[in-house]
Nucleic acid binder design. Structure first.
Lengths: 382, 382
DNA sequence: ACCCTCACTGAATCCCACA
DNA sequence: CTGTGGGATTCAGTGAGGG
């Protein structure tokens, strides 16, 4: 059975009953609602949202100041919006906004929440109490977490996301194939590894201070939206902050609605999303492709002329350089083998994704081999 | 200095107030209590346990004859449970055994629970409600999880552990230095990677079927006990299963108590622990934190001639220079006081560790004062 | 251009013995 | 109980600046 047919059959068999072409006109798409999210959500119609992504206050309850061993001061989250008197207060708050989310979500919609050990057990229990059905919990492993400066506990190196449907029997969107492709043809697991949001991605105010204390990395939202929405879906973020959800939704061709109480955050988010450009049709189609993306061997790209034998490939820091041979193997000094094998041996690592490890130059730009694979997939699709 | 001596000295200097040498005679050390854990825990004295490790069941239908804490009978299979009823029952059950654990734990004891997204949010919220204070949550990343065969969700590749103390202000045992050593001199993080329990480690019955459906890997218990107990501590496991906790406790020189309702599991556990051999003294000695080392006043080093009065000391960048006086105080311009005080004032910092801040020259080499302290400790041991 | 050093930073429930 | 003060404690990354 041709893969395309399989895919179309699956698409046709879906019964989420979305009306993509004509979303309810009342929805304030592409807007950041101003004010308390529970109140503003009340104004939205029932059954109108495809996905909620929520990054609520964590209720950190920090003690005194904290200094690094070098004496410098740690800039902690001490904002008013993160202060709650008790678990009861926090649970009541959670129940209120989760219940509104549940109402505005379509029956086949789904919800993501993110938190740390301070609040995630409250949130998880509350959403279960409300009838949400947990599909997975996801661990975001930080490659560069803040250390535990006093040596008192384990380094808190992860945050937790919960993905839940409207109920045990409810349908939900999961783009299995897109996730498997993204993960080099292995099933996407429940542990995701990303750096924290820093560098150029971290939004700053005019004085160079971070615009928001807890800005999330775009890669996280990218994966969430790619995994659990379709093009044109409406994504709601009740704690919009500086608008990472909106920016990535726009990039991926999804509609979005945000709620945010702080005008300073809203202003940053508006400017940011304004600048964001949607990916073009072809890129989105590839990513979203309903056909089963065939597994592509590197050798196929060489065969097809997308990578020429003799091409020099190198890692990002140009510590290693290898040469592509006609059969799709690499050679570097005395080592030779697949792109994965050689990358692994050179680094002395236990494994290596050659698609992302090796790079080549194309029109003066350095690109990962994976870019060639995408081009190939684009060209051979029809 | 032999490590044993260090360890003994440090252990003696600790003030957690344990009575290691003579644990309460009533404790059934090295025994697997037969029956419902809530009932059997009631027979244990208050404040007698150092650590609880619990791997509670979440498929409550396993037992078949489940009783609510109020005594009413629940037939999980035939009763038409609604969601609320089922969560309520599970939460009541959790509350019952967690409360008993809380009672038998010493004030400075701690608790571990392990679970998956099915039950961990209930457990985490319940233990918080009871007053336990979460110290970390830990993600066990499985190197070889069961794939999601139907491609409907992310591969569920982890389980979650929660580590909690008796309360916000309560003390707890954390062997920071041992963990850092175990992790190649980097702080141990909150994500741990282990394979699932399989191969020779997986206990089988006579017919080759696995003896217990959820046997945990020994490596997991090894790290838990190494991190949060001392030698001689009493570890309680209320859901003992095939006794991984007991086996590793015995191996690591910890005392243990188990509860298990199923005779078949108890039999497997007894045989297993019987065969387990404790590690010897030398192997059990772990890296100790400086925090537990005997305290040496800087003046003692001056008295003992390890640092001569009049010695010039300076910070690493030689921004500051001070002179050692006969009483072990430093003087620099108009400032004088302890090595810590002067370092602190000179930098305008909130605190300063003079041992590592100040340096001196010895045979042409620049060394921190801490080097002199180490020499003194070596020379004066025993 | 490249390398090296230094300064800075990130959702953090972050000390403890002794007087 | 509180207050005092000794002194233990950090990883990956970005970016600026100098050589």
């Amino acid at each position: 059975m041709p893969v395309e047919t399989i895919a179309r059959t699956r698409a046709e068999s879906r019964t989420r009953g979305k009306a993509k072409a004509a979303p309810a006109p009342a929805l304030p798409l592409g807007q950041i609602l101003d004010g308390d999210c529970v109140e503003r959500l009340r104004e939205l119609p029932d059954n109108s949202i495809d996905l909620v992504f929520a990054d609520p206050p964590y209720n950190l309850q920090l003690g005194g100041d904290l200094n690094r061993p070098d004496g410098s001061h740690v800039d902690a989250v001490t904002n008013d919006w993160d202060r709650f008197d008790s678990f009861k207060t926090y649970d009541d708050f959670s129940k209120a906004w989760l219940a509104e989310c549940r109402r505005v979500l379509k029956p086949d919609g789904a919800l993501w929440v993110i938190g740390s050990y301070h609040n995630i057990y409250r949130l998880g229990a509350t959403l279960q109490d409300l009838g949400f059905w947990i599909l997975n919990d996801i661990v975001w492993r930080k490659t560069n977490p803040m250390p535990n400066f006093r040596g008192t506990r384990f380094t808190n190196a992860h945050e937790t996301l919960i993905w839940a449907s409207q109920g045990e029997k409810a349908k939900y969107q999961f783009n299995y194939r897109a996730m498997k492709t993204l993960n080099d043809e292995l099933q996407m697991r429940s542990d995701w590894t990303f750096p924290i949001c820093s560098g150029g991605e971290r939004l700053k105010d005019d004085e160079g201070h971070k615009a928001h204390p807890t800005q999330k990395p775009e890669a996280l939202l990218y994966r969430v939206l790619l995994a659990t929405t379709e093009r044109g879906d409406v994504v709601l973020d009740p704690f919009f902050g500086t608008g990472t959800t909106g920016a990535i939704a726009k990039r991926l061709g999804r509609e979005w609605i945000g709620c945010e109480r702080e005008e300073s955050y809203r202003a940053v988010a508006r400017a940011r999303i304004e600048k964001e450009l949607p990916l073009d049709e072809t890129a989105l189609t590839t990513m979203q492709s309903k056909r089963t993306a065939p597994r592509v061997a590197f050798g196929t790209l060489v065969e097809a002329g997308f990578v020429k034998p003799g091409t020099q490939v190198f890692d990002k820091k140009r510590h290693f350089t290898a040469t592509v041979r006609a059969d799709g193997s690499l050679v570097c000094d005395k080592l030779n083998g697949s792109i994965h094998q050689v990358g692994k041996d050179l680094q002395g690592a236990s494994s290596c994704n050659g698609w992302t490890f090796w790079h080549y130059e194309d029109e003066g730009l350095v690109k990962p081999l994976d870019a060639a694979r995408q081009l190939y997939l684009l060209a051979t699709e029809d």
